[in-house]
Write a protein that binds this DNA or RNA. Structure first.
Length: 931
RNA sequence: GGGUGGUUAGCUCAGUUGGGAGAGCGUCGCCCUUACAAGGCGAAUGUCGGGGGUUCGAACCCCUCACCACCCA
């Protein structure tokens, strides 16, 4: 093995080999285990969230594969309708071209070109991460097969009356001119104003004042609402106001929606441009008046003076005109939530348009057939409530229920060109026909070719196809082998941010069309944040490319990367400054295994994953530790007798100890993996490998390998060195696939194993009969002995190279037996010059003291010990012991404790008390002697 | 306004049926001991957010307050 650990040398090599040899494909044997990847954007790049999530999935996949399951991890991408169309459109604009001039067909062609060009990026980044997905079955939401599934679902839902077309208020992006989903709208608090507008009554000199954050919408007002219990306005209910600038007379209505405390207590009602007003308007029979065009300019329903104005220009003009008319009562600064489209940054407009909806709310349809609530929503709730699907952590079910129980119909149409075209055709009479194809529609409805049909120009929400992902990827609606083997899948691994939009919808569609839940478990992980705890985003300039952590990147390149292609270029200097501060020397290379191990150890139950580069540094060191430990093992075992063919061996207590500890570690790791506690699993592996195998076992081996003359003992030690390492490599493989494979290739033959890859080896199974309490007690005694000695060394500033004479006093027969048995190890690890056992009544010379239970370990002072330092240490130890003594005495003197606490707890406290009293006596003696 | 989660060492976080406060990183000493200086050995560091309650006993259970974060309206 190379002397230094160099991940860049081993990682790409092994991945290429694994993939080339088809090791990621399902074995076809054993219990099926399947995970569907949450499909990333086909033209996207890997961010930290992906890397985190992919790591967690790969750990589960490799774990189950090694347990002998028929394991399948489905990879793929989605077409990300808006994002992708936008990217290509921007490219065209930069080249001086225009989508509309170009035409739909040519534009879509351009997007496919872009997809082919940049489509492989994220897949190759996943390869760098070691993701063991089955690339041979990769899917894309706009593949032919998946598109068939989309059409099939649409048609069937429509046939059942569960998809309808209607006019509703939707979130509208006036830049893209499309409806967008709630998920794509981000509301943030922004500074705005409240305008107080005075509306005169129609039939008197009275007037009232409405408060609004959006004065321009007054052109579409259809009512003014007050609270029915508001005494200030009770006399006005039922009267009319004359809408300024427009002249329309609109009613004053009473509605409990109005907040009497807010503003003036009078609310202008604009049903066509506000979700709440729409509801209020409906209650009072107000016809919505739409005053905007698709680009949010004022349309022909408004007075001519304002037509054609942009919504923000219109606001200024209207406020100015009202002011001129003496109808502006005032302007107050006000913070309000402003909804913006995540993609374009444009302020989203509630907008009244014709869209396609999935019914999720009706219990029954007017014709008596079951409605969407009964057919789709309620079953999705029940599946979780009745435990067919389990969430981890369980708490997230609340979020799930909250949303589903208050669900709205799902707007699935988008006014885009990139996506699945809605399978609906219109004739010249406006009659709509839904079917799998135009031919099917014509056949079904007996429409001759001469009867003109136009397909609906809109496409479906990307989430509509994503909702089908768990079964459409497996070949549905065909009844394929894959579908019957892997559906329902085992677990969905995802972030809590898309529980509503994706998880819930997959459950709905899975139950409806897959006939069963799409997955039995949902593992919800946290979201990756930067070291300050802030969400990572390009515009904040705090994103990290996982590949940069793997390969390393110099500061200049990092600054460059973070400051190019910004939506707000003016932020570049701030981002540059912040980057230079946070990464003074850029990012050093860490390798994939270290990054993966970091992600695993960050996967706690919390919902924020605060990413700290220091952790990655630490785990890279861990990889290095493993590497060097393996080198040491090989150095001592290669071409030597390791008992690979089950020759007779003798195992010492150190051997039996490390084997016993390995069983415990295996149990911990497996249990942690089964409960999605990757952090605990990683911690157990880390501690075993570093604190037990490296720090103690390798050291305990040295005297045996270097000095022992018994072949069976040496063979036993070599065999244990090799076998334990081999097992822990398998244990750690799901977390650190590359380094474990590389080392395993060298170690496995020494353990008598012949196989091309660790990937297909069995995951360790803890064996109760290998647990050995006796050996653990033995080694613990040795550890305490050595630690006591080391502490004296450290505190007395005695160089580690200097051999020490040791005196033992108050030794029990057991102590003497252990001393005898472990003498070689103690000499080696403790650098003992001599050991003398003193009689109980013998005089003890001035010496530094360490207590191992009742056994006194003493190092004589002459010429070695700093008397003052020892006295200082003794007084520190004394006060520590005394405070502990006080605590325990207090407990035991409490009669209620003695009588009510379990007997074993009381006994334990009594024993502790005795130990402490004993230790205090010795410390006091020692102090006297030194004084 | 409704809901959820959080508050433990300087930093990031564990703490699984309530019974001796932990890890990593950082800090401070001593060591280039033939696997590893990306290392070894040792040390220091906490009114477990505040208050109250239940209990023999609370970081953990209950109530309450404060602050932070997120989600929904």
């Amino acid at each position: 093995m190379q002397k230094t650990y160099d991940p860049s040398r081993i990682e790409p090599y092994w991945y290429e080999r694994w993939e080339h040899n088809g090791y990621f494909e399902p074995s076809g044997q054993g219990t099926p285990y399947c995970i569907m990847i949450p499909p990333p954007n086909v033209t996207g790049t890997l961010h930290m969230g992906h890397a985190f999530q992919d790591t967690l999935m790969d750990i589960l996949i490799r774990f189950h594969r090694m347990r002998g399951h028929n394991t399948f991890w489905q990879p793929g991408t989605d077409h990300a309708g808006i994002a992708t169309q936008l990217v290509v459109e921007r490219q065209l604009n930069a080249a001086g071209k225009d989508r509309l001039e170009m035409g739909r067909e040519a534009f879509v062609e351009k997007i496919w070109e872009w997809k082919d060009k940049s489509g492989g990026t994220i897949q190759n980044q996943m390869r760098r991460l070691g993701a063991s997905v089955d690339w041979s079955r990769e899917r894309f939401t706009m593949d032919e097969g998946l598109s068939t599934a989309v059409r099939e679902v649409f048609v069937r839902l429509h046939e059942e009356g569960l998809i309808y077309r209607g006019q509703r208020l939707v979130n509208w992006d006036p830049v893209l001119e499309t409806a967008v989903s709630d998920l794509e709208v981000e509301s943030t608090e922004e500074q705005g104003s409240i305008w107080r507008l005075r509306y005169p009554l129609a039939d008197s000199d009275e007037s009232l004042v409405v408060a609004t954050t959006r004065p321009e919408t007054m052109l579409g007002d259809t009512a003014v609402a007050v609270h029915p219990n508001d005494p200030r306005y009770a006399h006005l209910i039922g009267k009319k106001v004359k809408l300024p600038l427009v002249g329309r007379e609109i009613p004053i209505v009473a509605d409990e929606y109005v907040d009497m405390e807010f503003g003036t207590g009078c609310l202008k009602i604009t049903p066509a441009h506000d979700f709440n007003d729409y509801e209020v308007g409906q209650r009072h029979g107000c016809e919505p008046i739409n005053i905007f065009t698709g680009q949010a300019t004022i349309n022909e329903n408004a007075p001519a003076a304002y037509q054609g104005l942009d919504r923000f220009e219109a606001r200024e003009r209207i406020v100015a005109d009202l002011k001129a008319a003496g109808l502006l009562d005032g302007i107050d600064p006000h913070k309000l939530m402003v909804p913006r489209c995540e993609r374009t940054g444009a302020i989203v407009e509630p907008y009244l348009t014709h869209q396609w909806f999935v019914d999720l709310t009706r219990k029954t349809q007017p014709d008596g057939r079951p409605g969407g609530w009964t057919e789709i929503t309620d079953p999705a709730i029940q599946a979780v409530r009745q435990g067919q699907i389990q969430f981890t952590p369980e708490n997230w079910t609340k979020t799930y229920y909250n949303w589903l129980e208050d669900i709205q119909d799902w707007c699935i149409s988008r006014q885009l060109w990139w996506g699945h075209r809605i399978p609906a055709w219109y004739d010249n009479n406006g009659q709509v026909y839904v079917g799998r194809s135009e031919a099917e529609v014509r056949k079904k409805h007996g429409l001759p070719d001469t009867h003109s049909l136009q397909q609906d120009p809109d496409v479906l929400d990307t989430w509509f196809s994503s909702a089908l992902w768990p079964f459409s990827t497996l070949g549905w609606p065909e009844n394929t082998q894959e579908l019957s083997t892997f559906y329902p899948t085992n677990v969905l691994v995802t972030g809590f941010d898309i529980i509503f939009f994706w998880v819930a919808r997959m459950i709905m569609m899975g139950l409806k069309f897959g006939g069963e839940v799409p997955f039995k478990e949902v593992y919800i992980h946290g979201l990756v944040r930067d070291s300050e705890g802030a969400k990572m985003s390009k515009s904040k300039g705090n994103v990290l490319d996982p590949i940069d952590i793997i390969d390393g990147i110099d500061l200049e390149s990092l600054v460059q990367k973070r400051t190019t292609g910004l939506m707000q270029p003016q932020r570049a200097p701030a981002i540059e400054k912040q980057t230079r501060k946070a990464f003074t020397n850029g990012i050093s290379p860490h390798g994939t295994d270290a990054l993966r191990f970091t992600f695993a150890s960050l996967a706690t139950t919390g919902r924020d994953v605060v990413f700290d580069m220091g952790r990655v540094d630490g785990y890279r060191n861990f990889c290095n530790k493993l590497w060097n430990a393996a080198r040491y093992v090989l150095l001592n075992t290669e071409e030597q007798d390791c008992g690979a063919n089950d020759e007779a061996v003798m195992l010492g207590s150190a051997d039996r100890w490390i084997i016993s500890r390995l069983q415990t570690t295996e149990k911990t790791v497996i249990e942690a993996l089964e409960t999605y506690r990757m952090d605990l699993a990683a911690q157990a592996i880390y501690e075993f490998l570093w604190d037990e195998y490296c720090d103690w076992y390798l050291e305990l081996c040295k005297p045996v390998l270097q000095q022992d003359t018994d072949a069976k003992r040496q063979r036993g030690t070599r065999r244990t060195l090799v076998r334990v390492l081999e097992a822990v490599l398998r244990l750690a493989h799901p977390f650190m696939p590359f380094i474990t494979e590389e080392i395993w290739q060298r170690i496995a033959p020494l353990a008598g194993i012949d196989s091309p890859t660790i990937m297909h080896q069995r995951y360790p199974i803890p064996a109760a009969e290998l647990e050995d309490q006796t050996a653990e007690a033995e080694i613990e005694w040795v550890q305490r002995f050595i630690l006591g000695l080391r502490r004296i060394r450290g505190e007395m500033d005695i160089p580690p190279g200097r051999a020490l004479p040791v005196l033992l006093k108050n030794a029990s027969p057991k102590d003497l037996e252990r001393l005898e048995q472990h003498r070689v190890a103690l000499d080696f690890l403790g650098r003992l010059e001599s050991v003398d056992v003193l009689d109980a009544n013998a005089d003890t010379p001035e010496s530094a003291l360490a207590l191992i239970g009742e056994l006194e370990l003493r190092v004589p002072i002459a010429g070695l010990i700093d008397k003052a330092a020892e006295l200082e240490r003794l007084s520190r130890e004394q006060s520590k012991l005394e405070s502990e003594l006080k605590r325990i005495q207090g407990k035991l003197q409490n009669e209620a404790f003695v009588s009510k606490a379990p007997a074993e707890v009381v006994t334990r406290e009594r024993e502790k008390l005795a130990d402490i009293e004993d230790a205090l006596t010795r410390v006091a003696e020692q102090q006297q002697k030194m004084a």
